[in-house]
Design a protein around this nucleic acid. Structure first.
Lengths: 344, 344
DNA sequence: GTGAAAGCGCTAACAC
DNA sequence: GTGTTAGCGCTTTCAC
């Protein structure tokens, strides 16, 4: 065991009675070192409590042993789960994770202006952030592999779910129950930070709802499209707005469970019963959806993260993986928050 | 704008017509550079799209511009909120955040054996993890400032709340309502990963509950101390166990809201009403506590993170801050889940 | 299989 | 104020 940490390669070399070059080779496990020598070197390194200086190593090799993860939020259920999944995979492979939270729009600008991960990472993972042309160019200009979750970027690998398809399935469920007046809680344009996921779910909503309206020979109620900001509070407000409408929906499709939770709350406060008076359908299958009896679309969040992690590792080791986007499956989870509309 | 990223300091120097040393000084904003020169250098750097190589810089200075954050979980409400708070503060200061999730016990061992953040960070933040002697020595041996949240470590700065006091207040609330049979959901020894927070809350529970029992001349029911693993599912199970007891509690104090949520669920499924049949009190003031009408102890989670961030920054700039632990306040938030026991 | 030497790209003394 | 000169601690040819 060493005492004053900053040992150097040469100290180990001296102790093992070999050259620094050999120590370097032995420690990294590269071939071309006699077994006996390697053993001796490892013993010496252990005795000194020696560990390679990442900075020096990185300067010499150009590699950092680090992956940069860019997220729009870290404290939302979806993102924290994904980060957790990615981290586990990377950790097992001895790769460190540098976390960059973009924050608001100015924060995003500053991030891309300074590009703090430049030369700091061997690969980049971007979560749910459709990039502008410039941003993508900047990231690709880093010269390291790019993986994205929830979006597709030319030049990068992507992983995601079929948002549109899943949302259509969800909407059809409501229609099959007999609902014709269906509202949406999500985001309408302009989507903050340019998220695309909400847009895809919104498109699916419109597709189904408008078709229903056409069948009934009515105009779609545009006020049924509300903004929930993907938070509980936002969902609460959105539901409040919907209840204030002269024409009231009998069902609500929320683009995230958190917003659906908010909607449930507003409904309960208004003395309305779910699902008797209003059906509520969410998206995510949040840990607490079960507790709140929320019907929802389950997406394999942890797996998205793990897959991304594995993809990153493959790219890091120069793997020649097929670059087609991988789409994971979703499924409708029916609980107690959706039912046929009561005949009123 | 540069094209092939890897520009070097000398390229900028040449373009600006100065030496590399001057460019280095100008770029880092150190004094001793003429304004006109600095401007010229910055222009040249911008034109080339140049950015310093962190590895080289770090090798030369010994500083990394990075803080390591060690957490036991990233996808739990409490931790993700704190990470978010820390990250924001560090980001504003241009410091990067290296995230290390310990995972399970073997993961923890591997982490401390390899110590991947060695020489990679300028400071370390540890969340809610009481360290063993060895672990603490290893971390301090890194020779960088250590900050902890939720625990106190000799040699480091700490930030936290008064867990014991807050839990006593919570318990007293139940007692004042008239409850005498109060159960606890949390962790009993051995606490996984050596968490201390649960222990402090458990101690407070015992203190109050045992006092009540003494007053009543009864033995405390040891089966009232249950394990919830700090998850919804664990809380569910724990509550289930409590309901199976011959002697049933009239109130339950859960050491986290997530466990309280699980308890609520079990109660509802068992057809018991909250708070009429059983009162439930949580700890955290989780985003959804409000939604579920859960009475709880609110702790300023985001602020814990921000404070930690600021403390780290202060230490990084060699600040001579008082090293006394800073304790943030908590408050009891009464909602609908606690009430006097029904006379049965 | 191993060693010597030349960098990797920056910063810190020290001159001027 | 600015330039020169050594490193910082590894890795990697290229000899041997």
């Amino acid at each position: 065991m060493g005492h004053g940490m900053p040992e150097r390669l040469d100290d180990v070399a001296r102790l093992a009675g070999v050259s620094a070059a050999t120590v370097s080779r032995a420690l990294r496990g590269v071939p071309g070192v006699a077994d006996r020598t390697r053993t001796r070197v490892l013993a010496a390194a252990a005795e000194l409590g020696y560990a390679i200086s990442p900075a020096a190593s990185s300067l010499a090799t150009g590699r950092t042993g680090t992956v940069g993860v860019i997220v729009p939020y870290v404290d939302r259920w979806y993102f924290s789960r994904i980060i957790s999944g990615v981290e586990r995979v990377l950790r097992d492979a001895g790769i460190s994770l540098l976390l960059y939270n973009l924050g608001d729009d100015p924060g995003r600008e500053r991030f891309f202006a300074a590009l703090p991960l430049r030369r700091r990472v061997d690969a980049v993972l971007v979560l749910s952030l459709p990039l502008t042309e410039t941003e993508r160019a900047l990231l690709l200009g880093l010269g390291v592999p790019l993986v994205t979750i929830g979006t597709e970027e030319p030049g990068g690998d992507s992983i995601g779910i079929d948002d549109h398809g899943a949302a259509v399935t969800a909407m059809r469920h409501l229609v099959q129950l007999g609902h014709r007046e269906i509202a949406y809680i999500g985001e309408s344009a302009p989507i903050p930070l340019g998220f695309r996921t909400p847009l895809r779910r919104l498109a699916a909503y419109r597709e189904v709802y408008h078709a229903v309206c056409r069948e009934d020979g009515r105009e779609p109620e545009t006020a049924f499209e509300t903004e929930g900001g993907f938070t509980v509070a936002g969902g609460e407000r959105a539901m409040g707005a919907l209840l204030g409408l002269p024409r009231r929906p009998t069902a609500v499709f929320a683009a995230s469970d958190e917003m659906a939770f908010g909607a449930l709350r507003t409904l309960r406060r208004a003395g309305l019963r779910v699902p008797e008076d209003v059906s509520v359908l969410g998206f995510d299958n949040h840990d607490l959806a079960d507790l709140l009896e929320l019907s929802t679309v389950a997406q394999p969040v942890a797996e998205l993260g793990e897959r991304a992690g594995r993809l990153l590792l493959a790219r890091l080791s120069g793997g020649k993986i097929a670059t087609s986007p991988s789409i994971l499956g979703t499924r409708l989870v029916l609980r107690g928050s959706t039912a046929p509309p009561s005949g009123r």
